[in-house]
C-alpha cells in the first residue's frame, strides 16, 4: 500500500499552510483597503481565524483556541460595537492629500519587508515540519504559566484591571 508521508499527521501537508496563508494575506489586505470600517472589522475576524489555523499547524493548540475566543470573539465584538456606536461614514481612502502619504507608506513598507526577509534568510534553517518538538497543550502551557511565569501572570491581571478602570473613567459621561 502506498504510504504517503503526511498521512500520519494530515495537517502537516503544505497545502494547508498555503491555503491558510493565502486566506490570511488576502483578508489582511482587505482590512487595510476596505473603506467601510464594519467590513474591515469582519475582514480582521477572517484574518485571525486563518492565523489560528496556522497556530494549529505549528502545534500551538492553546494559543489557537484563545486566539479565536479572545481576539475574534471578544476584542473584535468590542470593535464592532464602537464602530456601530460612532456611526462612521465610509471613509474616503482616496481623499488623502496628494496621495504622497500612500506612496511613502508603500515604499517604506516594502523596504521593511525586504530587510526582514533578508534577515530571515540569513538564519540557519530549522524545520518545523517533521517532528513536533513541543505541543502547546493547555496542560503544558498552564504548568509553565503557574510556575515559571507566575509573577508576570499576576502583573498581567493588574494590567487588565488598570485597562478596565481606565476605559470606564475615559468613556463615561460627566456626572453632574
Amino acid at each position: 500500500m502506498l504510504k504517503l508521508p503526511f498521512l500520519d499527521r494530515p495537517m502537516s501537508h503544505p497545502f494547508f499552510f498555503y491555503m491558510l496563508s493565502t486566506l490570511m494575506i488576502a483578508s489582511a489586505l482587505g482590512v487595510i483597503l476596505n473603506r467601510n470600517p464594519v467590513y474591515a472589522v469582519l475582514m480582521l475576524v477572517s484574518t485571525l481565524f486563518a492565523l489560528s489555523g496556522l497556530f494549529v499547524l505549528l502545534g500551538a493548540y492553546f494559543v489557537a483556541a484563545i486566539q479565536v475566543i479572545i481576539y475574534a470573539g471578544a476584542i473584535l465584538v468590542l470593535f464592532l460595537f464602537v464602530v456601530m456606536l460612532l456611526d462612521m461614514e465610509p471613509e474616503t481612502l482616496l481623499k488623502i492629500k496628494g496621495s504622497t502619504l500612500r506612496v511613502t507608506g508603500l515604499i517604506f513598507g516594502l523596504f521593511f519587508l525586504w530587510q526582514f526577509l533578508r534577515a530571515a534568510r540569513a538564519m540557519t534553517p530549522f524545520s518545523t515540519a517533521g517532528n513536533m518538538r513541543v505541543a502547546g497543550t493547555t496542560a503544558a502551557i498552564g504548568k509553565q504559566l503557574f510556575t515559571t511565569y507566575a509573577l508576570p501572570f499576576e502583573v498581567a491581571s493588574g494590567l487588565l484591571l488598570v485597562g478596565i478602570i481606565g476605559a470606564v473613567v475615559l468613556a463615561k459621561k460627566k456626572i453632574p
Binding site: P14, F17, S21, M24, I25, A28, L29, V31, I32, L54, L57, L58, E91, L93, I96, L101, R102, T104, G105, L106, F108, G109, L110, F112, L113, F116, L117, A120, R121, M123, P125, F126, S127, T128, A129
Partner: peptide, 24 residues
C-alpha cells in the same frame, strides 16, 4: 514547512499592518 516560510509570512503580515497604520 520550514521556519523561514512562517517568518516570511509574519513579515508580510507585519508589512501590511504597517502600511495600514501609515496610510489610513
Amino acid at each position: 514547512m520550514i521556519l523561514h516560510s512562517y517568518l516570511a509570512l509574519s513579515g508580510i503580515l507585519f508589512t501590511i499592518g504597517l502600511v495600514g497604520v501609515v496610510t489610513r
